[in-house]
């Protein structure tokens, strides 16, 4: 809201303020971290005197200087921070159907321009204990309703939208990796190197809902393909599964649609009739990805190399 006020100010004045902001930055920083951490503390009523380009002496509150310095969000960033109204996306993963085809991983890597090992969805080979049966388990971001990652983010770069998606704004991320430490589900990846882009690819407008182009030194993570949801399409991975593993839908609407067969059922009934569950409910994270137990696996489980060649490429 405060930004809008400033949008109406004249350009010359804004430019001047921008320059003086550099001076002001020293004052703000010097005045301590008070200003840094909350606006309430900053608006202490003290004014900074500035000489405008036209020779007028004006008094400006330090907090105003900060607002001018605030990066202007691109339209995609603004839009990406708003959830799609009236939705709460959910995901049901049927472990009994996963055949480890990894088409989901390929689709994810393709859509988000990642290296194979960075796939936002990871198909794991699980075995809970020695005496229990092994199974394949795709793990995307769980888009928790009490997300530990957005709790710890110092700059609101990763955030939860009103439709439940946890996104990451990589024009803001400072690369502290606290969210990686906080996530119990290992859902987050970091761009340790400059992604392989041509100059042209690199300079594309950043789409927060697709997290493309990827940025060096920032986080990349599963976004439930927010860009696809916006246009009424199922996520990339969900649509790519040949085995009917994924059901994706809306908790508020109480429907989920199978990405393979497009069969649509009531979410609550699917969960109820198949003993759906979530992972690590005890952590209090309220994950929004549900699993159906791997029962009635008629096909044998065939273990594959957990460190396949295609995932070994580290830097571009």
């Amino acid at each position: 809201m405060k930004d809008q006020q400033h949008n109406s100010t004249k350009d010359s004045r804004r430019n001047f303020l921008k320059q003086s902001a550099l001076l002001g930055a020293g004052v703000v920083a010097g005045a301590g971290v008070l200003a840094s951490c909350n606006n309430e503390a900053a608006g202490s009523g003290e004014k900074i005197k500035l000489l405008t380009a036209t020779g007028e002496l004006v008094e400006v509150d330090p907090s105003q200087i900060k607002h001018v310095r605030k990066e202007k969000l691109t339209e995609l960033q603004e839009r990406g921070r708003e959830g799609l109204a009236g939705h709460h996306w959910t995901w049901v993963i049927d472990l009994s159907k996963c055949k480890n085809a990894r088409k989901c991983m390929d689709a994810c890597v393709g859509a988000h321009e990642l290296k194979p090992h960075q796939s936002h969805i990871n198909v794991l080979q699980m075995q809970d204990s020695k005496s229990t049966a092994p199974y394949y388990m795709p793990t995307p971001c769980f888009h928790c309703d009490n997300p530990p990652c957005t709790k710890v983010c110092p700059v609101n770069a990763t955030f939860k939208r009103s439709d439940g998606i946890v996104l990451i704004d990589n024009l803001r991320c400072i690369g502290c990796r606290f969210c990686i430490a906080a996530c119990p589900y290992s859902a987050r990846r970091f761009q340790w190197f400059e992604p392989d882009y041509t100059e042209e690819q690199k300079n594309r407008v950043y789409d927060v809902e697709l997290n493309v182009p990827q940025k060096k030194g920032t986080i990349t993570k599963c976004l439930m393909s927010a860009d696809r949801l916006r246009i009424g399409k199922l996520p990339y991975c969900v649509s790519a599964c040949p085995n009917g593993v994924y059901w994706f839908g809306d908790k508020l609407e109480d429907t989920v649609t199978n990405g393979t067969t497009h069969e649509t059922v009531k979410f609550s009934e699917l969960i109820r009739d198949n003993a759906g569950y979530t992972y690590f409910e005890d952590l209090g994270t309220k994950p929004q990805v549900y699993y159906l137990p791997p029962k009635n696996r008629t096909a044998p489980y065939e273990p594959v190399d957990k460190f396949q060649e295609k995932y070994q490429e580290d830097r571009g």
Binding site: C37, K70, C153, P154, V155, N156, A157, R172, F178
Partner: peptide, 16 residues
């Protein structure tokens, strides 16, 4: 982007 801590700082974050 260190200045983002000043601009967008979240009081909830232990880093802040």
């Amino acid at each position: 982007r260190l200045q983002n801590i000043l601009i967008h700082g979240r009081i909830q974050s232990p880093i802040v």
